[in-house]
């Protein structure tokens, strides 16, 4: 028997191992995105189809209160109104990728290996949420071009538009934590595919994303007004200079940017610790 010689150690990076480990995992998740172009393609095609369906099928049928039909036809106003709604819906649906991704990692046993490594325990989830949000940059770019082609415009300056995109990405990052937390409970990737999506339909449709809140029954309106997606969409409409419809009296409607930021902070504050705790107990099945 030869004597055992250990591997050399590396100096601690400036920002600590936690962040280093998180970026190593994020890099892995982003490489996956490039290696499975089909997945990226369909995650872009889906919202594009939504844009086209809503713009051309429902477009003329949904009048936006507060807009003046004599200056522009209803359908044109609706397209301006619609795009921020589609953006909001798209970044919310991005969380499904986190759910499925983590369920797959557990199913394949790679989570077991990560957990047996001397790495920071939040790193796998940080890397996952970071990569899933970063991927949305590309999705939002393609969607924006689609929007521009059908008549959507950025009408309130470049700086505000940058704020709008930043808010959307922050929201994508936030829901990725919720999606991750769900993913860690999934028995297999197939279930994750469904479970990752079910909660998103009511969440996005009970909002101002596609129809004005004023068109909903009275009892639904408060729910929609306090839905963070509504404030996100309203804030982006504001920042892009798109029509907002009639703004409700509820506080989130009056302070959409602030409410969106608070929602994101609260949701990450709840779901990140829950997900990390679950991760520490998770093992492959």
């Amino acid at each position: 028997m030869t004597t055992y010689t250990p591997a050399p150690a590396r100096r601690r990076p400036l920002l600590g191992w936690g962040l280093h480990d998180g970026f190593v995992v994020a890099r892995r998740n982003l490489i996956q995105t490039i290696r499975v172009p089909e997945l990226l393609f369909f995650s872009i095609v889906q919202p594009v189809i939504f844009v086209l369906l809503f713009a051309f099928v429902f477009g003329g049928a949904i009048p936006i209160p507060g807009a003046d039909p004599s200056t522009a036809p209803d359908a044109d106003v609706y397209r301006q109104y619609l795009m921020p709604g589609i953006f909001g819906q798209t970044v919310a649906f991005a969380s499904a990728a986190s759910t499925v991704g983590l369920a797959e990692d557990m199913h394949r046993g790679i989570i077991d290996r990560f957990r047996s490594l001397p790495m920071a325990s939040g790193a796998v989830l940080f890397g996952r949420t970071f990569a899933d949000a970063a991927r949305q940059i590309l999705v939002l770019a393609v969607l924006s071009i689609t929007g521009l082609l059908i008549g959507w415009r950025i009408s309130d300056g470049v700086l505000n538009a940058i704020y709008a995109y930043a808010l959307l990405l922050l929201f994508a990052y936030t829901v990725a934590w919720i999606g991750s937390w769900i993913g860690l409970y999934m028995p297999n990737p197939e279930t994750a595919n469904t479970a990752g999506l079910v909660w998103l339909f009511p969440l996005t449709f009970l909002s101002n994303a596609f129809v004005p809140i004023t068109a909903m029954p009275d009892w639904l309106q408060p729910i929609a007004q306090w839905n963070p997606i509504s404030s996100l969409v309203l804030a982006t409409r504001d920042l892009f200079g798109n029509p907002t419809g009639i703004i409700g009296d509820a506080w989130p409607q009056q302070n959409p940017i602030l409410y969106t930021l608070i929602s994101c902070a609260v949701l990450v504050g709840i779901f990140a610790p829950l997900a990390v705790r679950r991760y520490r107990q998770a093992t492959a099945r």
């Binding site: 050399p8 046993g109 077991d112 490594l117 001397p118 790495m119």
Partner: peptide, 26 residues
């Protein structure tokens, strides 16, 4: 473990690099 706990989409070399980085090796 009983499963091949490696990443399906990375190359062999990328997998080893990832795990090496996570072991905090130079």
């Amino acid at each position: 473990g009983q499963y091949a706990a490696v990443d399906e989409y990375l190359t062999g070399r990328e997998n080893l690099r990832m795990f090496g980085d996570l072991y905090h090796l130079p």
